[in-house]
């Protein structure tokens, strides 16, 4: 990875697993010896029906962990998130939309858009709660070269003890999300 400077906004309803999604991405970047910051919903962004977190990973020292109009990837898990952050994504950036919940299309034409029916597919897989890992798979499929080994390591670190039982299901969701964008 050269000249990495990724700025991701994960946003959705509380309970959709956006914070965990952000933490997994942060772990993956950390394994690649990148500088990383993760910060949950901040200030004015806490209002208006979104819970979110901002992740920056970069080969430069991370300055402010707070994103302004410099989002390179938006993962939008509900309508308010897309409404709020669409205009703050950079040109040629990426928006991943959870199209099970988000009812509209992305208006911007100057960036890459991926629609994933994450909530529906997760339900089909047997647990609605893995929708976030489905989107993680899609994100990595689109944009980064984190390895499957790193993802497994991150899952092990994130899902400990009683939560370890959820690793297979999350792995399945991750692979599904990745496969979906490869098909596109």
């Amino acid at each position: 990875m050269t000249n990495v400077n990724e700025k991701i906004m994960c946003a959705g309803f509380g309970g959709q697993g956006v914070l965990a999604l952000g933490q997994i991405i942060s772990l993956l970047a950390m394994y690649n010896d990148l500088n990383v910051s993760w910060i949950p919903s901040y200030g004015a962004e806490m209002r208006g029906g979104t819970a979110n977190c901002s992740i920056i990973y970069s080969d430069r020292l991370v300055g402010s962990p707070i994103l302004t109009n410099d989002i390179t990837t938006l993962i939008a898990m509900n309508n308010p998130s897309l409404d709020k952050f669409e205009d703050r994504v950079v040109k040629d950036g990426l928006i991943i939309v959870n199209s099970s919940i988000v009812t509209r299309k992305v208006k911007r034409k100057d960036l890459q858009v991926v629609y994933i029916d994450a909530t529906d597919i997760a339900t089909e897989l047997g647990n609605i709660r893995v929708q976030n890992m489905l989107l993680l798979g899609s994100y990595i499929g689109c944009k980064s070269d984190f390895t499957m080994k790193q993802v497994e390591r991150a899952f092990k670190e994130k899902f400990k003890e009683s939560k370890a039982a959820f690793i297979p299901m999350n792995t399945e969701a991750f692979k599904k999300g990745m496969a979906l964008v490869k098909e596109i």
Binding site: S26, V36, S37, W38, I39, P40, P65, I66
Partner: peptide, 9 residues
């Protein structure tokens, strides 16, 4: 609050 709430390696 920023430093207390954020995560870094």
């Amino acid at each position: 609050g920023m430093l207390a709430q954020m995560m870094e390696p």
